[in-house]
Amino acid sequence: MTIASLQGVVKRYGTQLVLDGVDLDLHEGEILGLLGPNGAGKTTLIQTLTGMTPVDRGTINLFGDDRHPFSHANREKLGLVTQEITVFDELTARENVLFFAGVYGIKGEEKKRRAAEALAFVGLEDRADKRPAKFSGGMKRRLNIACALTHRPRLLIMDEPTVGIDPQSRNHILEAVTRLRDRGTTILYTTHYMEEVQAIASRVVIMDQGQIIQEGTVDELVRTIQHEEKVSIDVTDASLVDRGRLEQIAGIKQVTVHGNKLTVISAAGAGNLDRIITIIKEQTGLVGIQADKPNLEDVFLTLTGKQLRDKEEGS
C-alpha cells in the first residue's frame, strides 16, 4: 500500500531546476533509502514532502490525501528527524520530548509514558533529566530522533540522522530504525553512508540533478552493473602512476585514485589485468591486488560519476 507519493514534482529556485519531474512512491512498512550527491535535490524533496516548500508543478499525496496533504490531521502522522540537531538546549531531554508530545495533542500520564518510552527507545533513559548542551553529538542525535517518535508517526522522514557521530551511536540509531520498521513505521532515510543503506533499506532510490535516476532493492541495483569488474590495487606511490595510460587499455571504463589505492573498473571479461599490472609495475611498486564484487557504492559511482562522500572527505 502506498503511504505517500510524489508525481511529476517540479521545483525551481529562481532559474535553477532543483526537482525535475520527480515520481516517487513510499510503501507502507518499508525503509526507503534515498541517495544522492550533494545538490542532488534530496533535501528539497524532503521539504516538499513535508509541505515546507510548495511545488511548482506536480502532485503530492500523503496518506491517501492529495487535496490537503499537509492538513494538521496528516501532519500528526508524520515525523521528521532533521539533519541539524533541532532540540532546545534550555530544556532537559525529557522536557524536549514532552514539548513535542504536547504539540501532537498527547496529554497527562500518557504524555509522560510516551516520553519515557521514546527516550528508552533511543537509549537515553538514564540521561532523561539532563540538558542536551552537555550531551555528546551521538546522544544529541538520538534525542533528535526521540522528539520525532513520541506521537508514533506512520511515516518517519530521517534526513542524514547519523552525520558526524561515533560508530556506537550510529549502530544504536540503525538498530532503532530497524525496530521502528518492525513496528510498522514507514521510513524515508537519506544518508551519505552507503553501508547504512545497504544494511537497512528495503528499497533504494538514487537521485542526481533533481531526477530519480535509478530505484530498486540493493540486489536489483547491483545486478544492473554486473557487466563490470572492479579491481583495487595498492601501490607504493599512486602519484607516479600515469592514469591516462591505464585508461587507454581496452575495456577500461574508469580509474580512480584514493591515497595509494587505485580502483579500476573494466567491462566484464575484458581480460586486461596483466596489462594493467605491467603498466603499474613500470611506474611504481605493487603492494597488493584485490578483485571486488560490485556493491551499492559502485552502482552509485557508475550512475552519477560522483563519490557520495566527496565533500565530507575533502573537508
Binding site: T50, G51, H72, L80, T86, Y104
Partner: peptide, 8 residues
C-alpha cells in the same frame, strides 16, 4: 524545518 512540520 521541524517546527514547520508540526501540526499547529
Amino acid at each position: 524545518m521541524r517546527i514547520f512540520t508540526l501540526p499547529f
